[in-house]
Amino acid sequence: MRTDAPSVSANGVATATPKPAPRRRSPALRKAFPYLLLAPALVYLLVITLYPGIFAIYQSLFVVKFLNWEWAGLGNYSSILQDREFWAALGNTALIGAISLSLQTGIALAIAYFAYRDPFIRGWRIVYLMPMLFMPSAVAFIWKLAFNDGRVISDLLGRLGLIEGNMDWLGSIPLARMTLIVADVWQWTPFLFIIFVAALQGQDQEIEEAARLDGASWPSIFWNISLPMMRPVIVVAITLRGIDITTMFTNVFVMTQGTPGGATETMSYFIYRQGFRMFNFGYASAASVLMLVLTVIIAQTVVKRAFHSGKK
């Protein structure tokens, strides 16, 4: 077999059309073959996405009280759209997500810029990865202890002379949101860093060398050459991270539970609270459907474009 390979490969490249399989197989089966390969995975995903979607739409038309389903038409939707808590959750998710994502992107780019040419890059990478490898629930407890229960952050800031006494981090809206952002940035900046560094290392070194010989400084090379070249990668990475940030739940569940006054309640936590704390399942389903619609719109526009540019 190995001795045959060269002649065949030359042939294959020249004609560029796949050779007809020597096995006899009906044309219908040949045509259906890729679909058959895909079928198990697709059926699985459809059951786990389409079924819940339909169920959520159906359930959202009822007021559900334990076993009793009472027809409500679009009642749930009209009350949700007037529910200040729903809009607050949407706003919180967008605000916390946007700040957190910008910080992560900025920090990851900055450290990737310094790290990728460094001789100790392998060591840095492992150190920087570590926060990402803790279970999210563990990370939430680290910061809950550091900010609130253990008063460590207050103590450290106090020693630096920045504040006096104990801060009540859950007592003010911006501070409570900030604790969530700190936990998210700490855990997930590595995700972007790893991708950015790989992109920078994968770049054509000769272009950088040439620019270097022309007397360009590293910051200007980075800004004018590297950054534009890695733009598709940045777009894909930010898109993926952005999607995950909008689903933020664990940190809210462990650290703030939405306090103070719902200022840290995210969409995911809103749905959870309506469904599994207050047992308004119809209401929670209506919120899910609205969030699904938003997701589909974002997926069809931003993500599709991001992954197309990423491929090229």
């Binding site: 995975a41 996405t49 169920f55 739940f249 995911s268 936590y269 599994f276 899910s288 997701t295 997926a299």
Partner: peptide, 16 residues
């Protein structure tokens, strides 16, 4: 479609 199932927030399908 397969890719897009990754974007679904767990909370969306949690109740169903």
């Amino acid at each position: 479609y397969i890719l897009s199932t990754r974007m679904m927030a767990p909370a969306i399908v949690a109740v169903p």
